[in-house]
Design a protein around this nucleic acid. Structure first.
Lengths: 241, 241
DNA sequence: TGCTGGTATTTGGTATGCCAAATTTCGAAG
DNA sequence: CTTCGAAATTTGGCATACCAAATACCAGCA
C-alpha cells in the first residue's frame, strides 16, 4: 500500500488492537441542550394541569446561553423520541400521552422485561442474580411507609431496570428506559394507585426465585403477568385524557 | 367567560363539534429531508462494503435544494433513531450494527411480536385473523422459488407486521418497524441464510392456528420461539463485524 | 358594551456566514 | 524516494438575520 493510499484511509479501520477511543471532546451545545431539556422535562409535572405545556425556542436558547440552532436540533431529537412536538407558529409543546398510549407502553414494557427475564435465566451469573436479590432487600415495606412514594416509585423502577440489565441486552435496557420515562411521568397523578399495583414485594421475590432456579418459562411468565397487571390496573383505575 | 379570556385560550379546546382539522400545511424541509434521508438509507446497501459510509451536509442540502439547517435537524433526528452518527470534523456516517447488536434486535423483536400475538388472541376479531390467513397464502413456496429472495424477505417481514397489527397496539407496531428497518438492512448480505430460518411456512401456519384458537400462551410461545430461532441462526451462521 | 377589522408582535422555519478543528495537499529537507 | 510540516481546504458547530404565518392587541364602529 502506497503512502498516499494509506493516508486516504487513515481512519477507516485503524484497528490495530490499540484500545483507545477518541477523547471525549467537550460535548456540543446540541448534546448539552438535549440533556438539559430532557432533564427539565423529566422534572416537570406534565400531567399536573390540563393547559398545554409549551416551550419557547428563544427563551430556552437565552437561558442555556446558546443560539437557537443547537436548541432546535435538540428539540428535533426530543421530538423524534416522542417527548416534544413542535407545532409551527404555535410553539414546542410537551407531549401528553393518552391513557390508551400509556397502557400500550406498559404492555410493551411487559414484553421486553419478560424477555429480559427469560434471557437472564440462561445468561446471568449466580453472582449477578444474587446482587438482584440484595437490591431487592431495599424494597422493604418499612421503607415504603416512611419515605415519599415518589422516591419509592423511582426505586421500584430501578429494581426492574436492574432485572433487565441481567439479560445482558443493552437494547432491552435502552428500550425500556425510554418507556419508563413516559410511565414515570404520570407518577405525580397516579403514584398511589400505581404503587399499589406494583409494590407487591412477593411478586418480586417470586421473580427472583424463578431466575435463580433458571426457570425461563416461569420467570418470563411472572414478569409478564406482574407488569400486565399494572396495565390492567391503569386501565381501570387511572384517569387521563 | 370574558371575550379576552376566550381569545387567550382560542386553540386549547375549540371543540364545538365542527369536524375539521388544521389543513395539511405543506410539510417542512426538515420533515422532507428526514423522509428523503431515511428513504435513501433504506435503499442503501449498508453492509455491502467495509468502507465507512459517510454523508456530507452541504452535498445533501444542495441535492435537496434546501439549506444546511433543516438538513442538520433531520440528521439529528436520524441520529436519535440510531441510523446515523455525526462525527465532528469527520462526517455523518451511516451506522453499521454489530452482530451482537443485531441479535439483540431480533430478541427484542421476539419479545414484542410474541406479546403482540398474545394480545391478538384476546383482541383481534375473527375477520382480522382471517385476513392474516389470507395474507399468509402469499407465502407460497412456489413464489419463493421464482421471485427474488430480496422481495420475499420483504414480504416475510410484511407478514410479521400484519400479525403485530392484530394486537391493536400501534406502539408495538412502531417499535418493531424500527427493529425491522435494521434487520432488513443486512438482508443483502444474509438473505439466503436468514430466509432459511424464517421461511418455515409451517411455523407461520401454526401461529395463525394458535391465534385462531385464541390460545394466548401457545401463540406467544410459537412466535417467540420462531423469532428466537432466527436469533440463534444469525448467531451461528451470519458473519458481521 | 361588544364585535370587527386591521396592525403590531410573536414565533418557528430557513438561509447564510463565520469559526475552529481536522484533514489533505504539497513542497522542501534529508 | 521518503519524511515532515506548514499552508490550504474541508467540514461540522454555532450564531445571526430575515421571512411568512399566526397570534395578540387595539382602535373604531355599531
Amino acid at each position: 500500500m502506497s503512502t498516499k493510499a494509506a493516508l486516504n484511509k487513515r481512519w477507516q479501520s485503524g484497528d490495530n488492537g490499540l484500545a483507545i477511543e477518541r477523547l471525549p471532546a467537550k460535548e456540543s451545545f446540541k448534546s448539552r441542550a438535549y440533556a438539559a431539556l430532557k432533564e427539565a422535562i423529566t422534572n416537570m409535572n406534565i400531567y399536573g394541569s390540563d393547559e398545554p405545556l409549551l416551550l419557547d425556542e428563544r427563551d430556552i436558547s437565552e437561558r442555556l446561553g446558546a443560539s437557537r440552532t443547537p436548541i432546535r436540533e435538540a428539540v428535533a431529537m426530543l421530538e423524534q423520541e416522542g417527548l416534544l412536538k413542535a407545532v409551527p407558529r404555535r410553539g414546542i409543546l410537551v407531549v401528553r400521552r393518552t391513557k390508551a398510549e400509556m397502557i400500550e407502553m406498559i404492555e410493551a414494557w411487559a414484553a421486553l422485561e419478560s424477555m429480559a427475564a427469560r434471557l437472564a435465566t440462561s445468561r446471568a451469573s449466580d453472582e449477578a442474580i444474587a446482587e438482584l436479590r440484595a437490591f431487592f432487600k431495599e424494597f422493604d415495606f418499612n421503607r415504603i411507609e416512611r419515605e415519599r412514594c415518589d422516591e419509592y416509585s423511582t426505586a421500584n423502577i430501578a429494581f426492574h431496570q436492574a432485572l433487565i440489565r441481567l439479560s445482558g441486552s443493552s437494547l432491552l435496557a435502552a428500550m425500556t428506559d425510554n418507556l419508563f420515562f413516559h410511565v414515570r411521568a404520570i407518577r405525580h397523578r397516579t403514584i398511589f394507585e400505581m404503587d399499589r399495583a406494583q409494590r407487591s414485594a412477593s411478586d418480586h421475590l417470586e421473580i427472583i426465585q424463578a431466575i435463580e432456579a433458571r426457570d425461563a418459562d416461569r420467570a418470563e411468565r411472572l414478569v409478564r403477568d406482574h407488569t400486565l397487571r399494572l396495565a390492567r390496573h391503569v386501565e381501570s383505575h387511572v384517569n387521563l385524557d
